[in-house]
């Protein structure tokens, strides 16, 4: 008791540990993202364009179905559609799909599309060389716009996957600060979430896509 030093060292260690765990909590945010990125869990897909490496051999003997889902988040009133719900591609072949958006409201709005791929195992094999989801869309009242997606399916796609579903959710981000790129905004991190909310995430992974569509309101 006379010697106060043991308390001093114990307490300073514990205070350090506390601060360390506080920081660790924040560190978990990028860690979570890196983890999902590496493993492709949660359907997360890269938010940067795929840089083409040459030498993709197109595999003419294999066909992969790619489905497109277009959802809008709770308070988003834009009309958002893909030109095709589902297409068939050969692995390796560069494909262009066009999406359209209409801003039916009376104000200028900014939107951000957030992609997600199911099954999550296939996420890393969907290579997007160009995507409207890498940017934000700004539309005047009543205006519409065509948006392009350019992608390939990696020929390495495991054999048991014959269908890939690419789901986009469109968010209204007009009220958040005007910023050039989503990746630069504080508190955000590279990579995109699977879907608008956890309920939806679980559903989209659990049940067939057709059902997901119905649950999400369809189009």
């Amino acid at each position: 008791m006379k010697d106060q030093n043991p308390h001093k060292t114990t307490v300073s260690k514990l205070v350090l540990a506390t601060l360390g765990m506080f920081l660790f909590g924040f560190l978990l945010v990028p860690l979570y993202d890196v983890f999902c990125d590496i493993t492709g869990l949660n359907g997360k897909v890269s938010n940067t364009a795929y840089v083409e490496k040459e030498g993709f051999t197109i595999d003419p003997n294999r066909k992969v179905t790619v489905q497109f889902l277009t959802n809008t988040n709770a308070n988003m009133n834009w009309l958002f559609e893909a030109e095709a719900r589902s297409i068939q591609v050969h692995p390796g072949e560069l494909t262009r799909v066009s999406f359209s958006v209409v801003n039916p409201s009376l104000k200028r709005m900014t939107a951000q599309a957030v992609p997600s791929v199911s099954p999550s195992e296939g996420a890393e094999y969907l290579l997007k060389t160009q995507c409207f989801c890498f940017e934000q869309q700004e539309l005047n009242p009543g205006a519409s716009q065509q948006m392009t997606l350019l992608f390939r399916v990696d020929p390495q796609l495991p054999d048991h996957i014959s269908t890939l579903t690419l789901a986009y959710t469109l968010f209204d981000i007009s009220s958040t600060r005007p910023v050039s790129s989503i990746a630069e905004r504080p508190g955000t991190y590279s990579g995109f979430p699977a879907a608008t909310d956890s309920l939806f995430t679980s559903q989209s992974l659990l049940i067939s896509h057709a059902q997901t569509l119905r649950l999400a309101g369809g189009y």
Partner: peptide
Amino acid sequence: MDIHFGTSFFDAGGGGDPVLFQHL
């Protein structure tokens, strides 16, 4: 910070993830 300072830790629209909240 999400509520008052415009970050998007848990807001999918801004690049965050609500599932992350549950993990944390």
